[in-house]
Design a protein around this nucleic acid. Sequence first.
DNA 1: CGTTACCTGAAA
DNA 2: TTTCAGGTAACG
Length: 272
Amino acid sequence: MPELPEVETIVRGLRPRVVGRTVTHVRVLPGGERALGGCPPDAFMRALTGRRVEGIDRRGKYLLFALDDGRTLVAHLRMTGALLHRRPDDLPDAYTRAVLSLGDGAELRFADMRKFGTLQLVADAAEALGALGVEPLSADFTVEWLTERARGRTAPAKSFLLNQAVVAGVGNIYADEALFEARLDPRRPAGSLTRDELARLRDAVVSVLESGVRHRGVSFRNYRDAQGEAGANQAHVRVFRRTGQPCDTCGAPIARTKLAGRSTHFCPQCQG
DNA sequence: CGTTACCTGAAA
DNA sequence: TTTCAGGTAACG
């Protein structure tokens, strides 16, 4: 569920509340063991207990918790995961799969209805990360880099954007929004995009992601930030889940198709 | 390269 | 009852 802006919002919420705290107790609840990727729950609890969180960072859609023994707790929320900063007497969160108690009495709850999310404790973060391309909100995200990656590719532009090895952190919402902003047909083969079009696409990706961060993410259904609050960016979405509604720019009805197995929304007029 | 599987629930 | 969901690894 969360894409880059949602994960960034969670990281920013957790940082001031969790960095510097020590993990005093770890519980893995029913359904939580599968998030551990084969690590036995006891081993996970033992390895994490007593560790101090030195820093929290984001890479693509992953959250990285740097621990004082040099290891990293790597979390990925996939479709329905959430990381919630709570007090022990706060109401329980549905589908809580693991709870880390912190030295100041607060707790960090990992909740995940669909159980796709992961929590991995590794010596080197790279062990837990998939193949990740450039960070789109960094200076490394250049037109040259996009051009190189797009060369010769027959996959649709939409699939190209969803590929984490190309741009890390773009998901289904922001891919559709960026293609609309760049006025590009999501079905166009990535390799057919001109340098000019790729320049537009680059700028559009940056723009929609920055807007997402500014509005604390999109909450169409499950997404909640570290305080359990919904985001506000759904009010600023131009095509995603607006099938049949008039395009803001030209009034034509927003169309929907399927690409790379994902619902894809676009304006047939503006993105022709 | 596209499709399927992983899980659970909400919406059509 | 069927389809769909903000993700991605594994499969053919």
